[in-house]
């Protein structure tokens, strides 16, 4: 739900301000790749109506966000491709593919794709965090969006602890990816929490 909320917050922000200054389209592209790799099972496996609905919403809303930022004026006119230039194709995609291949529990296409998607998701926030560090001052809605985008994985960790004890659930790759993903946010969270506590604008060091 937090993940969904972060997407809705971002959509709302783009629609309301008609500007995507401070938002990394490259992060959304990483997530689009993550979702496409992971949700292949939509074609051959049914888990629940909730599960299917969320997958469809995540994929379609993320592609819509990319479309808005890259191609749909007036939002696309505010997209700064020079600032948002983190080369994830080199730094994230390659390593995620290699890690996905060597750490997959089974050498099947869906399993390798799933594993690669977990590793890629764990670092997908990097283009966004690096963009914010260049700008330093973060708009309120952008701060909420990034905070919810980080918080959802933290809540997965709580759920994993519960599931481990309640049903003996084990998911080593998911756990490791989740810890890396949450760890990358800790620094941002600190400055976000401080800005909320003191009721000031979020300014990154």
């Amino acid at each position: 739900m937090l993940h969904l909320m972060s997407i809705l917050l971002l959509l709302w922000k783009l629609k309301k301000s008609k500007s995507c200054v401070g938002i990394s389209c490259r992060m959304q592209e990483c997530y689009a790749i993550v979702f496409c790799l992971r949700y292949l099972d939509l074609f051959y496996q049914f888990i629940s109506v909730y599960n299917t609905a969320m997958k469809v919403v995540f994929i379609s809303s993320t592609f819509y966000l990319i479309f808005l930022m890259r191609f749909q004026p007036p939002v696309s006119a505010t997209y700064d491709r020079t600032a948002d230039s983190f080369p994830y194709e080199q730094y994230l995609l390659g390593p995620a593919a290699v890690l996905g291949f060597i750490s997959a529990e089974e050498w099947s296409i869906p399993e390798i794709f799933w594993t690669a998607s977990i590793w890629l998701e764990s670092v997908s926030i990097l283009p966004q965090l690096i963009l914010l560090q260049q700008l330093r001052e973060v708009e309120n809605l952008t701060a909420e969006f990034v905070a919810t985008m980080g918080a959802y994985r933290f809540f997965y960790i709580l759920n994993w602890i519960y599931r481990y004890f309640a049903e003996g659930y084990v998911n080593w790759i998911g756990w490791l990816g989740g810890i890396v993903q949450t760890g990358l946010y800790v620094d941002f969270f600190y400055y976000y929490a401080m800005s909320k506590w003191y009721g000031q604008k979020l300014v990154l060091p």
Binding site: D41, Q45, I47, M54, E105, E106, S108, P110, E111, G174
Partner: peptide, 10 residues
């Protein structure tokens, strides 16, 4: 034993 590779999380 066959590993179960159903991923029920998002």
């Amino acid at each position: 034993e066959e590993a179960d590779h159903t991923h029920d999380e998002l």
